[in-house]
Every structure is written in C-alpha cells, then in structure tokens.
C-alpha cells in the first residue's frame, strides 16, 4: 500500500493539474493578503473559496484520476497485491497530493506575511485543517463513486450531483426547513443539520473562530456553547472522521467484491 501511495502521490504532484491548483491558491492568497492586509478578512474570503472549491476540485479530480488510471489499476490488479492496498493507496495518494497543493498554496503566502507572529494563527490553522479534511472526504467519496460505476458519464454525473447536494442544495433544504418550522424551537435542529454536513460544519467552525460570530446572535451563542464543550468537539470530530471513514470502508467493500 505504501509503495502505491508513494507512486500515485509523486505521479499526481508532478502533474500539471496539481501545479495549476497550487498556482491558483498561491496567486489568490498572495493577492488578497497584498490587497487587504487584514488576516481576518483574508481568512473569510478564503473560507468561501475553500468551502466551495476544495470539495469541487477533490470530487472532479478524484473521479477523473480514477478513470484515467484504470489501465494502470488493471495492471496492478494482475500482480499479487491486495486490492484494498491498491485502492486505498491510490485514494490516499490523491488526497495527499491535493492537500499538499492546498497547504503550500495558502501556507506560503501566509508564512511570508508573518502569520507565525499573528494572533490570527488559530483562525488560519482551522481554515487549513478544514480544507484538508474536506479534500479527504470528497476525494474519497469520488473514488468510491468511480469504483462503483464503470460508466464514466454516470460516474461524473453522480460525482457532480454529490458536490451540488453537499455544497449547495443541502443548505437550501436546511433553510426551507427553518422557514417552514419557524414556530418551533430550531436550535437543536440547526445544530444537528450543521454537524451532519461536513461543508456546513467546516463553515461554522471557521466562523466561530472569527470576530464575525458576534453577528450570529442567540443561535451563534448556542453554537458557541456546543462547539466550546467537550461533547461538541468530540461529536463534530467524530462526524468529520465518519465522513472520511465511510468512503474508505465503501472503497474496501466495493473493491473486494467487484469483478474487473
């Protein structure tokens, strides 16, 4: 597994997409830091980008990589290597390569800016951490979708749909529920709905670390209380871990049964 992980990571890190991704983040972050000079504001702007872009890129890249490396995968399958090693290795290689681009792309401009001496370092770390976690979750899910669907069109369609549901539609349904049931106490519902979706969970975790959380009034206070105590932290960490564990287990389940 480690060998395959190593090869796919190196392979991906050398690809021009990884450079493009890295270059985009470098330019974007450096540009924002240069224009505003306010770390808090840059973190907010980056948050919007990361919450939309990381899942999208991870999903598309994941499914593309899976389909493109099919021949190599078939070659590997002919060797005496365990199937889980092959697919976990490929998935981890992909996730690590993407995360590296993300961390370097955002990290280098911030380091040059002198984030290590800035009190905003925790906001920055939370932002990076959430970006990495989202990359892992969505590339895993994409990999699993690819593995289950030999039809590429169907696979791409499902992957895009997955991203659309998690990043956009989910919030729409969430908001609709809030409006329809506004006569009822909705605090625990909104907490639950937030914890359940990794994109929303990341957004709230970042917002609560920022000044802007004061805007969130009573609901914000409920969130703050929840995420401030041990249970809340445990539960949200568990939720994020579960979102990584599900595709990892799914990949194993499908890979072991699939007839190539």
């Amino acid at each position: 597994m480690w060998k395959i992980l190593k090869y796919s990571t190196y392979d991906l890190l050398r690809s021009r997409w990884a450079y493009l991704y890295l270059g985009f983040f470098l330019l974007f972050t450096a540009g924002f830091l240069y224009l505003t000079g306010d770390v808090g504001k840059v973190v907010i702007s980056l948050m919007n980008v990361i919450l939309i872009l990381c899942p999208l890129i991870a999903t598309m890249f994941g499914i593309m990589y899976h389909y493109n490396s099919r021949e190599f995968t078939e070659l590997l399958l002919a060797q005496p290597i365990r199937r889980t090693s092959i697919f976990w290795g490929q998935f981890l290689g992909l996730a690590i390569a993407l995360s590296t681009s993300l961390v370097l792309g955002i990290g280098i401009p911030f380091l040059l800016y002198g984030i290590t001496h800035d009190p905003a370092i925790w906001q920055f770390m939370i932002l990076l951490l959430n970006g990495v976690v989202l990359t892992f979750i969505f590339s895993g899910l994409a990999f699993w979708i690819g593995l289950r669907n030999d039809n590429r069109i169907r696979g791409f369609g499902l992957a895009i749909l997955l991203w659309l549901v998690m990043a956009v539609l989910y919030d729409g349904v969430f908001l609709l529920c809030l409006i329809v049931f506004r006569e009822y106490p909705l605090d625990s519902f909104s907490l639950f709905a937030t914890v359940f979706n990794p994109v929303d969970l990341s957004r709230i975790m970042i917002l609560l670390k920022l000044d802007i959380s004061a805007l969130m009034g009573y609901t914000g206070a409920v969130f703050q209380k929840f995420f401030g105590n041990g249970w809340g932290i445990l539960l949200s960490t568990l939720s994020l871990l579960a979102w990584i564990a599900i595709p990892v287990a799914g990949i194993r389940y499908t890979a072991l049964r699939k007839d190539f």
């Binding site: 948050m47 919450l51 908001l175 909705l186 009034g217 609901t219």
Partner: peptide
C-alpha cells in the same frame, strides 16, 4: 428578509446557497 422572520437562519451566514439566493 428571511433572517428577520427566522433568526435561526443565521446558521447559514456566508454559505454559498445564501449567496445564490
């Protein structure tokens, strides 16, 4: 407008959907 009716909707502050909406 929605926030005024449903204060809990602040949980969706700065989400992409709200932007689209």
């Amino acid at each position: 407008y929605i926030l005024d009716r449903t204060p809990e909707a602040i949980a969706l502050l700065r989400s992409f959907f709200v932007r689209l909406m």
